[in-house]
């Protein structure tokens, strides 16, 4: 029950999103390295600045959001954000086991990059390397947002 209410709070702030997994035409093969991020909190700013909504500080929230269908993105080392449409065999943009496992992780990926309307989309063919969480932002920000961890959590 408590988890449901916390989850609902996240959804209320974030809206439930599941990206469609459309068929693709042409794209460009790319190798990228970066963090799998929660795009809603990153772009909306509702939970704080970009530095606070990446890495360990935002990991729990990123899990809640992904579970609720918030699309994940890849924040590449050059600062470009790619909207992730698929990771390997998981043709979901959020909430799948792979997306949940990789939340906040820094990964090296091989995939296809599509650009449309000036937006960057990414279909990850392979996660070449998973370096787990690398950005230890909780040292500076604690848990962002604090209510990401329920009060009655063990």
């Amino acid at each position: 029950m408590r988890h449901n209410r916390v989850f609902a709070a996240f959804l209320a702030l974030s809206s439930p999103f599941l990206l469609a997994a459309p068929a693709f035409a042409e794209g460009q093969r790319v190798q990228l390295r970066g963090e799998i991020i929660d795009t809603w909190c990153y772009f909306s700013g509702v939970m704080g600045g970009p530095e606070a909504v990446v890495g360990s500080a935002h990991h729990t929230c990123a899990l809640w959001c992904s579970a609720g269908g918030i699309p994940v993105g890849l924040l590449a080392e050059d600062g470009t954000v790619y909207m992730v449409l698929q990771i390997e065999d998981s043709d979901e943009s959020a909430g799948g086991d792979t997306q949940m496992r990789l939340a906040s992780h820094v990964v090296s990926v091989d995939g296809m990059h599509y650009e449309r309307d000036g937006l960057n989309y990414l279909v990850v063919s392979e996660v070449v390397q998973d370096d787990d969480i690398q950005v230890l932002s909780h040292d500076d920000f604690g848990v962002v947002p604090p209510f990401a961890v329920p009060e009655d959590a063990p």
């Binding site: 772009f43 700013g45 600045g49 970009p50 600062g79 470009t80 309307d117 000036g118 937006l119 960057n120």
Partner: peptide
């Protein structure tokens, strides 16, 4: 800051 972040996603080409 958010505008800068959005620019990273959207790029400069737009419509």
């Amino acid at each position: 800051m958010i505008r800068l972040v959005a620019a990273c996603l959207v790029g400069l080409t737009g419509a």
